[in-house]
Amino acid sequence: MSTPPILAVREASISFGAVRAVNGVSLALAPGERHALLGTNGAGKTTLFNAISGEVPLTSGGIAFKGSDISRLRPHQRARLGIGRTFQTSLTFADRSVEDNLRVAVMGRRGPRFGLRPWGAYRPQVEAARVSAARFGLDEVLAQPVGTLSYGQQRELEIAMALAGEPELLLMDEPAAGMSPQGRGRLVEILRGLPRSITMLFVEHDMDVALSLADRITVMRDGAVVAAGTPSDIRANPLVRELYLGGKH
């Protein structure tokens, strides 16, 4: 790899009591890379994911972001460094409007984090929230409470919120989970349209979504990496075919 990685996970292990959920996983993402994390249920993908975002502490190993060690930082500190994330089940502020949700998202990184003046004093942030809504076609439902949006729109808002902080690394935990085929197509288009200044690491069960988005794929089983490579490598890998694709291909 010619450029230094933006994210480097080194020999990461995570244990919960006697259960070793992640076992010596190493992972490196080049700037701009789209990297998919595949694996069956219980393979440790989400645990690894939560360790990168800071919610779960590593038992051993290390995580470096842009060359500096972040493995001891709290989630909000990592977010401020430029690591954005989405959640498997939407975590939004359901009774507030789309606009309010995006305003909070915008302020997470750029502040104000304790703004005590009325909204009129924070025009750039208000404007940035509108712009990020427009990016996902959510500007038409700006005033609607998030709870009243369609499922697909909620998933899009989930990603819009993570992007509102202009992260350099975007972690997405099953971004297309539960979406209709049309919704998935739309989502893939949106994600493909994002600039290469954003590096992406995502967990995805849908092979079509994963293969059409990813430059590189890492496959996990029982907490360890069993295969890594380009989508065509992965397609050709006999172990992966047996383990993950089953009789589908």
Binding site: S53, E55, R74, P75, H76, A79, R80, G84, R85, F87, L91, T92, F93, A94, D95, R96, D100, N101, R103, V104, A105, M107, G108, R109, P112, R113, F114, G115, L116, R117, P118, W119, Y122, Q125, M161, A162, G165
Partner: peptide
């Protein structure tokens, strides 16, 4: 105010609030 909205967000989804960069 933004602070009030952030508190509201904290009640709704604390994990999300932290992931956005708030302590």
């Amino acid at each position: 105010t933004p602070f009030g909205l952030q508190l509201h967000a904290l009640r709704n989804a604390p994990r999300r609030v932290a992931a956005l960069g708030f302590s």
